[in-house]
Write a protein that binds this DNA or RNA. Sequence first.
DNA 1: CACGTCTTGGACTTGTGGGTCCAAAAAAGG
DNA 2: CCTTTTTTGGACCCACAAGTCCAAGACGTG
Lengths: 201, 201
Amino acid sequence: MVLTTKGLATRQRILEGAAAYLRTSDPGNATLDDIRNVTQSSKSQLFHYFPGGKEELFLAVARYEADRVLDDQQPHLGALDSWAAWDRWRKAVIARYKAQGANCPLASLMNQVGSVPGAAEVSTTLLRQWQDHVQRGIETMQAKGEVSREINARRTAAAFIAGIQGGVTVLRTTGRTEHLESILGLLIAYLRESTAASTRA
Amino acid sequence: MVLTTKGLATRQRILEGAAAYLRTSDPGNATLDDIRNVTQSSKSQLFHYFPGGKEELFLAVARYEADRVLDDQQPHLGALDSWAAWDRWRKAVIARYKAQGANCPLASLMNQVGSVPGAAEVSTTLLRQWQDHVQRGIETMQAKGEVSREINARRTAAAFIAGIQGGVTVLRTTGRTEHLESILGLLIAYLRESTAASTRA
DNA sequence: CACGTCTTGGACTTGTGGGTCCAAAAAAGG
DNA sequence: CCTTTTTTGGACCCACAAGTCCAAGACGTG
């Protein structure tokens, strides 16, 4: 399939329109007709630009959204080199998910891991990149002597990822940000207190 | 609707069969015909015992599964009164979810929070009960002087819930228990180290 | 302008799955 | 037993949504 400028524009319009729509409604119940309406396109356009149909389109949206997740945490996530930076990052994460509320496109994606092939790969990649950033942040703090060297950076970064995911899950379920704020605060406190704790070990 | 003994038995057969089936397959794609096959029942039986149709049946399954979640953590969860007890609980949680793997009935339930009315109530109730148990455990340890009184039991219990949820989410997505083990270990370590930390505060 | 390719509209097909209905079988009850 | 109520089987209906198809429109190129 060769695409002209016009074709690419249409494809992009569909992709972004679909992403925006899926962000405001349960992807599980979304239909191609919904996408068609919201993107002002026809059935043939949908299948022309996404020959794999619904599955291909939704996966493309998932990839698109996965990029946004990390972007929304920048520049903080990429430079966790002081407690102030960690704090800004914490607030950015909370703000992002508070604004997003009950509609987490990535969460819906993860639910399709079982049914849609490529979904596992997309979400696993995202989680890994996310975790890598946090791990680098911890290691940076260790290099500066702000975090004990006894902390296992990789394992602790994994805990951060789990904590955030869970906080978001609870937020999506109950509508309260309390859990997310609590776990993030606790994890950072754990890091900060590690220097003192390490003198006891 | 008045049910005889036989009727109740049939209803129960459907409920448990559906629960077992939904545990081994993505509830999002499950159909009433699937349930019909696996429970050896007819359409009329399904609608006779669950007049609300699919929604009512699935919600009943959700309630049924929600009870199992806490039961599977007993008796440990109900008596978090020593570090050994916390450790047994930790292992029970990990074992439960490791065995369950990618199919978490509750997770699927939470995804329907948006679309199915009663779903939010069921999962919120479960999370609250779960959190209450943990909170009581923390308070018990505080009473015994094993955990610093400066720890906010409620907030920390919330962090545990978020951590576990997230660990399970990652497990469902990637198939690895690493994150769940990491966050649980970290949270308990945080509690244990709090006594020492409080002497600094 | 003419030709081929890319793009688009939308009618149509097809499969599927939730839900309805009725008549027959089985119990319960007197 | 006979009547009434509950239980059951499964054919049927209907709506909806994914995907197909073709003809027409737009656009670039020689």
